[in-house]
Design a protein around this nucleic acid. Sequence first.
DNA 1: TTATGAATTTAGACATGCCTAAAATAAAGA
DNA 2: TCTTTATTTTAGGCATGTCTAAATTCATAA
Lengths: 220, 220
Amino acid sequence: MTMTTAEENYLKAIYHLSEGGTKSVSTNDIAAEMKTKPASVSDMLRKLGDKEVIEYRKYYGVNITEEGKKRALQTIRKHRLWEVFLVDKLQFAWDEVHEVAEELEHIQSPLLIQRLDAYLNYPKFDPHGDPIPDEFGDVRARPRVALNEMEIDQTGQIVAVKDSSAAFLRYLDKVGAYIGARIKVLDKVEFDGSLEILVDQKKTLFMSKDVAANILVIQS
Amino acid sequence: MTMTTAEENYLKAIYHLSEGGTKSVSTNDIAAEMKTKPASVSDMLRKLGDKEVIEYRKYYGVNITEEGKKRALQTIRKHRLWEVFLVDKLQFAWDEVHEVAEELEHIQSPLLIQRLDAYLNYPKFDPHGDPIPDEFGDVRARPRVALNEMEIDQTGQIVAVKDSSAAFLRYLDKVGAYIGARIKVLDKVEFDGSLEILVDQKKTLFMSKDVAANILVIQS
DNA sequence: TTATGAATTTAGACATGCCTAAAATAAAGA
DNA sequence: TCTTTATTTTAGGCATGTCTAAATTCATAA
Ligand SMILES: [Mn+2]
Ligand SMILES: [Mn+2]
Ligand SMILES: [Mn+2]
Ligand SMILES: [Mn+2]
């Protein structure tokens, strides 16, 4: 059973909104995520239900099926592998890759993805720190905490961002925060939750609570 | 003015059938090339005519416009650059690349193509020996002759194939003919036009006139 | 010159994917 | 229990791209 580009995009959105298939998802939330109208979503949900990649009960939201989860993870795998290719091989900045990967992820060729994976040396994480599912859909996730939830003197390494918008990524580049940076919380301001951070044992950085909440860290 | 994937595929077919814009092309020939029905072609010709990438006079075939030629060459450029990527970087065989490139050529990102070109070191020819147009659509073609038209004792180098079907390419692999091979015509049989060829000064090869007619050579 | 036939276009239909406007439903409050 | 209202679905329509069947056109052969 083949899926169209539109169907793959919807299914991926449902997978993300359901937090990996653990929650049911509303029509309105899908419409917001896909930047379409709820009426268009209803049309698509019927189709995805017919293909049994979601369980669709009218008026009650949708749940992704095991088959659907497998499909979504394949698309996510392709998206993230292409992002690694664009950054590692073609010198794209991490804020330039998303839209192109959104197209490349729909290319149909198992051989292509297998060879790309090998060529990139079987990467486990994409340029935004998100894990790349293996060919069976298994994900090796790292336990992460949002930077704003860390306490003074705690240390760790930036591994991902929640907000992947170009604006946010460019801001991080500008201030010198990047995936892989080792950080230490030097101070937290009680009044507004803003933080003072030491980056790579040399650079001091101030950031608002809102910014810190979008930076994910593994503690060490 | 953006073009859909279908429009790009039709325009590319028209460019090839018109031999680079020098001939006018019939509806039936386009239908055969695109594996669709003439009725579908008529529909599409009206659209391409409206967009002024072809000149369409009902019942009299089409001619590609300068704008259309430019567009077609951009798609061809992308197709051939991706073929080089697949063969040089991902170890695809030359008979495995066409279908995937047929999809990849429609990815919309000027930056991607520019970077890919640089990454591949600005190749001038694809794995089948066909020239890669530059970003302005200029093609540096090499004067070629079909192998069956060469005379005894003449020498040259295989630079391209006319027939890119997987079956033909696999046959060439099997007998040891490849793009770049240096060849010499040892004998020609008058009766059926078949040839005896010396490849790389060491291997002798017999081939039918039909096979030789699909192998293109620059003479030396 | 006119009939014939091949090539081509048009008519009408269907699938996908999107929209707006209207109708239906479920959940919550009075 | 009976509204009210936000959410969701349906109805109807439009664009793209395909098809079959019917109509049209052009070229050519009698
Ligand atoms: Mn996508
Ligand atoms: Mn990513
Ligand atoms: Mn194509
Ligand atoms: Mn080629």
